[in-house]
Amino acid sequence: MDTTGMLDEGLQRLHRSGPERLGRLTNHAPMAIEALAARGRAGSVHRWLDRYARKLEDFPPRVEPITAASWEPALGDPRRAADWIDHFSREIAARPWREVLTEWWPRLLPGMYGGSTHPVIRVGHAVRTLLAGDGTEPRLTELAHGLGYWAARYRRVTCRLSPPAAGGASAALDAVPPIAARGGGFAARLDHVTDLPAWADAVTDPHAARDRLAELVRAATYRYATHGHGEETMLVHAATAPNAVLRTLPALPPALWAPSLRAAWAASAAVTAMYAPPEPAAFAPAGSLTPEEVFERAVRHGDEHVIKLTDTALDIGDARALAAALRCVELSEPLRWAVSCGSGTRQRQR
């Protein structure tokens, strides 16, 4: 738990900004700074935000308030992002945050694919912080922003489920058929995901679901070390989206754990289908680096996806997971930062 106040200050800076930029790209800053604070690097929060600031946009305009009678038609409407964030801010101010989360989690779970899975990841980071310590106003507001973003970007996907893949999560990911259409962004590719193995469909026991979910996070993280070159940014979400769900389970009643596993599996498998490379790369071990040293490399690199995948790798904590984090550092472009240059700016790279 961060006791320096840096995370709360960073979140307050960010809550003046919208959840997206350019109408489609996610604001990753709340997730990244939560990972920094959770890993003992709260002192880097403002410095990292200064580098990321060029990617932020103003908070979006409001349309009309969302109410208990009007929420369903607004679900999945990105123009209503501010209305949704306002709605969850009011809900969390009036009731315990776990109560609000428990009510809305099953409503939002089928739409996990919207926003390239970033909304559920943002919620997972917010919940981890709330579970770790005091529910300060900025941390509660962050949960409202995450849930509001999820509701605004809600998107269902209907896939045919093939017979269950044999073996564990690693074998199941290997069995995911890649889509034929390889062009376009996440939303365009998602339209072509029609067939996934039913690896998690038969699990009903809550504790078995939790164990399966942890296994999926581990397998997807390991897989990045050899398959991340298929798309170095998007394949991060095959691991970080199910890990966000795993982090949220302790705040949810056990009856919701098995449905959460099924949704997380479908999201991870869909990302795998959309971006899997034709052939795996050779595995490169992490060597003798400690988890702290690997996270330091991620912080110096600065890219938000590198930081978040490394944060997930540290949840697992073994050498194969650290190798995946280092592979992400290797494949990804470092975060650029703007410096003043006369009357304009130029971009520099660390």
Rank of each mutant, 00 (worst) to 15 (best):
L335M: 15
L335P: 01
T4H: 06
A273T: 05
D86I: 02
A269C: 10
E296N: 08
L56V: 02
L335K: 09
T312M: 01
Q12N: 08
R128H: 11
A225F: 03
G111Q: 03
M112R: 11
L213I: 09
R95W: 04
E142W: 03
P164A: 15
L216K: 07
E296W: 03
V100G: 08
Y149M: 15
G148Y: 04
P110G: 08
R327P: 00
G228F: 08
E9N: 10
A214K: 04
H207I: 07
P291F: 06
A323P: 09
W257T: 08
H301G: 04
T312W: 03
D2P: 04
V203S: 14
A219S: 14
T233K: 14
L143Y: 01
L249W: 04
G168T: 02
D191P: 02
R54V: 01
A276W: 01
A29C: 12
P178C: 08
W199Y: 03
T233N: 06
L143F: 04
P73L: 13
L75C: 11
L143P: 09
P291I: 00
R51N: 08
G185N: 13
H46W: 00
H229A: 13
M112E: 02
A270V: 10
R122I: 02
K55F: 10
A298V: 00
R350T: 08
A202M: 03
P65Q: 14
R21N: 05
V306M: 11
R51W: 06
R24I: 13
G133R: 09
W265L: 13
N27D: 09
M31W: 02
I316A: 09
R13K: 06
T194S: 14
R128G: 15
L109W: 04
G23T: 02
S170H: 04
S340H: 09
M274A: 12
S44C: 13
T102V: 14
D205F: 04
P30S: 11
D58R: 07
G184D: 09
A281Q: 09
L140A: 13
A38W: 01
A338P: 01
F295E: 02
L190Q: 07
E215Y: 00
G228E: 05
A35I: 00
T345N: 05
P164I: 06
Y52H: 11
R24V: 11
P277V: 11
S89H: 10
A273D: 07
E103Q: 12
A180D: 09
V217T: 02
R62L: 14
T310M: 06
P138G: 10
R24P: 00
L256T: 03
R348D: 07
F283L: 15
A220F: 01
P65R: 15
P19L: 05
F186Y: 13
